[in-house]
């Protein structure tokens, strides 16, 4: 088990490093000039461009630049301009010449609570609905749930989000919307403000889970070992939860890992629809100002979240299904 985990962790580290290298090359070494982008249209002064180059360290050889960047993340660095950037240093944002890490620290709690709240919602609703459908297979409940899942699978957050705000927040007043208080100033307010985004975001996910869970459970229930267990006289309820659900769990966890990684990397459209200031919106807003260092940092953190969650999921998977460890 330990060896399995070590191998997976090593693989993940290699992938994160490769992603950082590729994004770095794409963002800073392509013929586009970040310094030119930084000062935009009103910047034709070659001396000024050279100055920005020097400040960003872009006049160094590429491998030196990349090494400085990676080293900065772990031990901090002082920029050639003389600004010091404590670890973890992702460089300086163009827009307001601030270090990037505090910006991300500021935004990540929103993304994290949206990811945790949303994924808890879609896992509970989706798997619950799928199990009930499998239990009631072919009956009215199953048919209604299947149709609901089909529609849920086909709606988009940018459509149902505004509708949900208009109905539940503006018209019925059940849930607050629009204030987005920070975690430190108003913990309860920031939590209740998250309920609506989490529920809306969960719709597009749980419909997938209920379909998958239903078909996985039905498949499991037709297996030989289930029939044997029933033939031995075990109660169908016990067999359902103890055997069939365990059999289906491995596949559900795999899908869950992918989705959790996605939402941890920033549920951008949900954030945009509900006006939340998470990681995704940080990236979207940085597009306007062509803030490449900021984009690079968000990319790296988001990709790392996905890769790390995948390792954790693999570990869970190995616990549930011992065959995986030996593979």
């Amino acid at each position: 088990m330990l060896r399995f985990l070590a191998r997976r962790a090593l693989g993940a580290a290699v992938i994160i490093l490769a992603i950082s290298l590729i994004t770095y090359l794409l963002f800073f070494v392509l013929p586009t000039d970040p310094a030119q982008l930084a000062c935009g249209k009103n910047c034709s002064n070659t001396q000024l461009v050279a100055q920005i180059h020097h400040n960003m360290g872009l006049d160094l050889p590429v491998y030196q630049q990349y090494w400085d960047y990676i080293r900065g993340i772990f031990v901090g660095r002082s920029m050639p301009s003389g600004q010091s950037c404590p670890a973890p240093c992702f460089g300086f944002s163009f827009a307001n010449d601030q270090p990037i890490w505090p910006l991300i620290q500021n935004r990540y709690p929103t993304t994290l609570s949206l990811a945790i709240g949303g994924s808890a919602a879609f896992l509970l609703i989706g798997v619950g609905l799928g199990m009930l459908s499998a239990w009631q297979q072919g009956k009215t409940f199953d048919r209604v749930a299947s149709s609901v899942s089909l529609v849920g699978n086909s709606v988009q957050i940018y459509f149902i989000g505004p509708l949900a705000i208009a109905l539940f927040a503006d018209k019925l007043g059940w849930l607050p919307h629009g204030s987005d208080p920070t975690w430190s100033s108003d913990p309860i307010g920031s939590l209740t403000n998250m309920i609506l985004p989490c529920l809306v975001m969960s719709v597009i996910f749980w419909s997938n889970y209920s379909r998958q869970t239903r078909s996985l459970m039905i498949e499991q229930l037709s297996e030989d070992h289930i029939r044997t267990a029933r033939a031995k006289g075990m109660s169908s309820r016990y067999v359902f939860y103890r055997y069939a659900l365990r059999g289906a769990a491995a596949s559900i966890i795999t899908i869950f890992g992918i989705d959790l990684g996605t939402v941890l990397g920033g549920a951008i459209i949900t954030e945009a629809t509900f006006g939340l200031h998470g990681l995704g919106m940080l990236a979207v807003n940085a597009v306007g100002s062509l803030d490449l260092p900021l984009e690079m940092a968000v990319m790296l953190i988001s990709a790392s979240s996905i890769v790390i969650v995948n390792v954790i999921v693999d570990a869970c998977y190995a616990v549930i299904d011992p065959r995986v460890r030996l593979a």
Binding site: T32, A283, M296
Partner: peptide, 20 residues
């Protein structure tokens, strides 16, 4: 490796570079 890129975010982050 290509699959491990967050595609939506990558698009948002990289499109200004690509356009330029």
């Amino acid at each position: 490796f290509m699959l491990s890129f967050p595609s939506q975010l990558f698009f948002i982050a990289f499109s200004p570079v690509a356009i330029s």
